[in-house]
Design a protein around this nucleic acid. Structure first.
Lengths: 230, 230
DNA sequence: CGGAACTTTGAACCGTGTCAAGGAACGTGG
DNA sequence: CCACGTTCCTTGACACGGTTCAAAGTTCCG
């Protein structure tokens, strides 16, 4: 019962998130606590591999990460965003090169193994299902939405996902990505991201300063992209 | 042992595909045969729901299908393509509206349940993993590739996936989609798909006639999109 | 105080969309 | 077997959203 544990805010994102996916048992919660003691910090821009913990899946305790595809000519696309409380599935050896990269400084811990059918197991399954939903949404975003709409839809998704880990409060939510990373997420250029962000600010639908975002009119953004909250 | 079974080519796509994902046991193969007798045909443009077989996942025995997102203003995006041998996972009730639609006439059968750890179970898991890989690839395609590149990458993917079900032969492979459906797959317009297809034909890298495609220079297409076959 | 990383701005350019119309292919019924 | 309607494919002219290139401004941090 060390200091890190007692102050333990860093871990609460994981517990909060997973608890909402399935009612965890005490055994599950203890397993998560044990895993916490093994947590480790990874600097921004570093690659995250499961090798730290002999190939087990990881829990993203704090910070933002993403699965990234880089083309040989330098083009880059973020495939899937990983937020605190998300599970980083073990990469299959045959998988094509799509490493997970830390977008900010990141804290990870090994995911405790769950007994089949246990609440924790169901939470993992629900997390995997949620990730698939995010992939579908990203596809629709890239395929059919304009730059303004892509940003609107993405901001709504991030807000909702962070809320699931209790990381949204009255003043908004953390948004630590640079405009260039945002561009690689949304399939645009950083120049155009910049212009689009400004037009959202002008419209009074976005307040983004010093790494914190607020959506004063989420309703309106949602109507732009016919968004159904889950 | 009815006629349909003995001539049973329709089913071999499923068995072929799953056998390559994991060495199936005889019990698994028998289960697939039993499932076959329950197969049912669904017309093009009809929605495919699991309700036909009390909510169990389905096997796509023949024909093409896709998970589709339709926006309220009519925009449409195909999220994930389903080819013969693919597993159509049961939709979770909380899932956002992304129904599976038959793109051609389609034959489905209920997926036999697999004992945990059995070869069939591993085949299902591998199929799910493959689907996730396809989603990542679709994201990279939509986010960072030009129209010409998107088509090249998509054609290569389809060829490879159909080959996994033994549906590619010397004369090419089936490609029954209209240019409009192709547009909704690749996030483009049908007019632009048309122009891009023509330019591929002019370049001698695509032969597409009467529902059959051939890629005379797959190598070159692969180099365009730095493609690594799996 | 200096440098690196990030954001902002402008002007020109281009890939893709839009709109509109005509042509080919295909199935269906007389 | 032809006539017809429907669906799909093709083409042209033009518009526009987003990119490119280049440079200046800002913020942050050592």
């Amino acid at each position: 019962m060390n200091i890190a544990y007692r102050s333990g805010f860093a871990f609460s994102a994981v517990v909060t998130r997973l608890s909402r996916l399935a009612a965890l048992s005490d055994a599950d919660r203890n397993g998560l606590r044990d895993a916490e003691s093994l947590r480790c910090r990874i600097g921004a821009h570093r690659e995250i591999t499961e090798s730290q913990f002999d190939g087990r899946p990881l829990l993203l305790v704090a910070g933002w990460a993403a699965r990234v595809r880089i083309f040989s000519d330098g083009r880059r696309q973020l495939l899937s965003l990983l937020l605190p409380g998300d599970v980083i599935a073990a990469a299959r050896p045959d998988a094509p090169a799509a490493p997970v990269t830390a977008l900010t400084e990141v804290t990870v811990a090994p995911a405790p193994t769950a007994a089949p059918g246990s609440p924790l197991d169901r939470a993992y399954a629900a997390a995997a299902a949620a990730e698939q939903t995010h992939l579908y949404r990203q596809i629709a975003r890239l395929g059919r939405l304009s730059a303004y709409e892509r940003l609107a839809d993405w901001l709504l998704e991030v807000q909702e996902r962070l809320a699931a880990a209790d990381l949204v409060n009255g003043t908004g939510f953390p948004m630590p990505l640079t405009q260039e990373v945002l561009a690689d997420t949304l399939g645009l250029t950083s120049v155009h991201i910049n212009r689009t962000l400004q037009s959202m600010r002008r419209d009074g639908v976005l307040d983004l300063r010093s790494g914190t975002a607020r959506l004063p009119d989420a309703q309106h953004l949602a109507s732009l992209v016919d968004y159904r909250a889950s």
